[in-house]
């Protein structure tokens, strides 16, 4: 498949399939997803709840075992690594979660929380650990001398997210997966954290997989965007281009549904009724067809492959909008 972002991508996901078994039924969480992320790039992954975007993020980190497919990080297939080899590789890949308060152990001091990855990685010298912790805390805009000895409950959600970001950076990772990092934050704080992520990316030369349900948030930070629906990728393309000219009807629907903070833009009433079907029994063919205004018989029988629709833009649709 022609999904090449760069000749030497840092992260390459090939035909990844992840399934869960719940009460004897199989949930098709991620079905045959392939992605590439270039070094220094931010790839935004958007989709509604239950579309498999978080599962994909976890499967990349090997926190969720894939049924099949490969996750190639810097040329190494993470799905075949085990034990120490996987641990070594995981230092280079970090994860930031949605709920910053739940992600921090309430009984431990901030200094220890941020130092923990260093302890696990075997950095024995306490002075060296202290120096590194101070450096990342300062980088995320917190005063190490003031915060190190305090407990998570003394901080607001936004500050806790800064602490989580500091912890994810302390091992100098190359790749960071941000799973809805600002969804739990207020508008005024959200902008601070998004700006901080951009600064950190530049400062530490990071490559990011940015998972979110909010298209505007994703656009603000991403070079390219991948849209997911019921476990499959619908569309991948450069952010600006994808939002200006979506090719997949689902991308168009998502863009249309966003409430715009401008009273002159009357909310469109054309959003089709209906809800995403269950991932236990996804529709045959194109999974979006049950809600798609363009669907026909072919969409029910044939799974659309991602194919090139414009420069760098791919859509999995039999009847693309462009």
């Amino acid at each position: 498949m022609m999904l090449q972002a760069a000749p030497d991508p840092l992260m390459k996901v090939e035909n990844l399939v992840v399934e869960y078994s719940v009460g004897g039924k199989t949930i098709h969480a991620v079905s045959d997803v392939s992605l590439e992320i270039a070094r220094g790039e931010t790839l935004g992954l958007v989709g509604e709840s239950g579309c498999g975007k978080s599962t994909l993020g976890r499967a990349v980190l090997q926190l969720r075992q894939a049924v099949s497919g490969k996750v190639l990080f810097d040329g190494h297939d993470l799905t075949t690594l085990k034990g120490e080899a996987l641990r070594q590789m995981r230092r280079r890949v970090q994860l930031i979660f949605q709920d910053p308060i739940a992600s921090l152990n309430p009984r431990r001091r901030i200094g220890d929380i941020v130092a923990e990855p260093l302890v696990i990685a075997g950095v024995k010298d306490p002075e060296e650990r202290k120096r590194r912790v101070a450096e990342v805390l300062a980088a995320v805009g917190l005063d190490p001398a003031l915060v190190s000895g305090r407990l998570p409950h003394e901080f607001s959600g936004g500050q806790c997210q800064r602490i989580c970001i500091a912890r994810s950076l302390v091992l100098n990772p190359e790749f960071v997966i941000c799973d809805e990092p600002v969804s739990a934050l207020d508008v005024s704080i959200r902008a601070q954290i998004l700006n901080l992520l951009e600064e950190m990316k530049a400062r530490y030369g990071l490559t990011l997989l940015f998972i979110a349900h909010d298209l505007a948030v994703v656009k603000a930070v991403s070079d390219r965007v991948a849209v997911m629906y019921l476990g499959r990728l619908c569309e991948v393309g450069p952010s600006e281009q994808l939002f200006a000219r979506p090719a997949h009807p689902y991308t168009a629907l998502l863009i249309e549904a966003i409430p715009v903070p401008d009273p002159d833009v009357r909310p469109t009433q054309s959003v089709p009724v209906g809800e995403p079907p269950s991932p236990i029994a996804p529709p045959s063919g194109c999974r979006f067809r049950t809600r798609c205004p363009r669907a026909d018989a072919r969409c029910a029988s044939e799974v659309p492959e991602l194919r090139l629709v414009a420069t760098g833009q791919f859509a999995a649709c039999h009847h693309p909008l462009i």
Binding site: S188, A191, Q192, N195, A216, K219, F243
Partner: peptide
């Protein structure tokens, strides 16, 4: 508050006018 909202018609990687403090 309005300025701090990420908007679809703004180019990616444009720093958001965040409200400092809390």
């Amino acid at each position: 508050l309005l300025a701090a909202l990420p908007k679809l018609d703004v180019a990616p990687h444009t720093p958001l006018p965040a409200i400092s403090g809390r």
